[in-house]
Design a protein around this nucleic acid. Structure first.
Length: 287
DNA sequence: AATTATGTTGCGGT
DNA sequence: AACCGCAACATAAT
């Protein structure tokens, strides 16, 4: 479910909950989620979390006393983290969780990280695409290398983006979804960035003008930065109890808006299929 | 009730 | 290498 802004929201809220906590034990409810690693319990016992890094949509947990053990967490479509405090109170999951739902572990709980102070971090993942798995420093380096630059980065090179995307023969949508080209955009934010840049998703990338490509680079970064500022688009992620989990869905211009009038030009928003994904755009003002 | 869609990505094929 | 379609899986909507 999550794209870069949602993962960043989860990371920010999670890190201050678990940094400094020491793992006492790990429960594996579904082996696939830990890549069938039978050593994970032994290797994590006694480890203290020092921080969480992120590249694209991938989170990387660090530990205080080792530089050769990391935990990689990817939410894919339906992954969620929940933190249960010393009072047994569930922190996370979003507004859709009712009080009676808040019993952990539950049906879709895949792993649990129990800390020595009695708190627990749960990983839930209905569709089992996500993971929480161990990695060595070498593996982390390899994983990082798979990602292109993030449009939200302060040093994101717009000129490089313009020249590179204009060499690609695929649809603009497919190019923007390619994490090895630019990291972080997913199905929602690609559609939103394309609307902002007034470019149709199915346009061949090599037909973009330099101006259009530059607009697209800016739109991609802007839309993700604005979403991070309000805590992402979904309820389906870790949120602070009582926290004001803002919702970027209020600001979406095309995603899920098929059949309604484009805010910019009044044309009815269309939904089609491009790059194998549900794709929303305005046939009036997106060229 | 069967088909289709789902905010992701990795694989195997051209 | 770039690109495409499909598979991984569970559930909700049509």
């Amino acid at each position: 479910m999550p794209e870069l802004p949602e993962v960043e929201t989860v990371r920010l809220q999670l890190v201050h909950k678990i940094a400094g906590r020491t793992i006492e034990s790990v429960t594996v409810y579904h082996p696939k989620t830990v890549a069938h690693d039978t050593t994970i319990k032994r290797k994590l016992r006694g480890k203290t979390i020092s921080g969480i890094d992120r590249v694209g949509k991938l989170m990387i947990f660090h530990f205080t006393d080792t530089t050769n053990l990391y935990l990689l967490a990817h939410l894919k479509m339906t992954g969620q983290f929940f933190f249960v405090d010393t009072h047994g109170k569930v922190v996370g999951g979003g507004h859709s969780m009712t009080e009676t739902d808040r019993q952990l572990p539950m049906k879709h709980t895949r792993t649990a990280f129990h800390f020595i102070d009695g708190t627990t971090l749960y990983f839930n993942d209905m569709r089992l695409f996500g993971y929480t798995k161990l990695a060595t420093a070498a593996t982390v380096t390899k994983e990082r290398a798979k990602y292109g630059p993030e449009p939200i980065a302060a040093d994101f090179d717009s000129n490089w983006f313009v020249t590179t995307i204009r060499k690609r023969k695929t649809s603009v949508k497919a190019a923007l979804l390619d994490q090895s080209f630019v990291a972080g955009l997913g199905n929602i934010y690609v559609d939103e960035a394309l609307w902002r840049a007034k470019v149709r998703p199915m346009r061949r990338a090599n037909t973009l003008t330099k101006t259009e490509a530059a607009l697209l680079a800016k739109a991609g970064g802007d839309v993700m930065k604005e979403s991070i500022a309000v805590g992402g688009t979904t309820f389906q992620h870790f949120v602070d109890t009582g926290g004001d989990n803002g919702n970027f869905s209020d600001y979406l211009k095309v995603f899920g808006k098929q059949g309604t009038a484009c805010e910019r030009c009044g044309t009815i928003i269309k939904k089609t299929r491009t790059a194998g994904r549900g794709t929303h755009y305005c046939p009036g003002c997106q060229k």
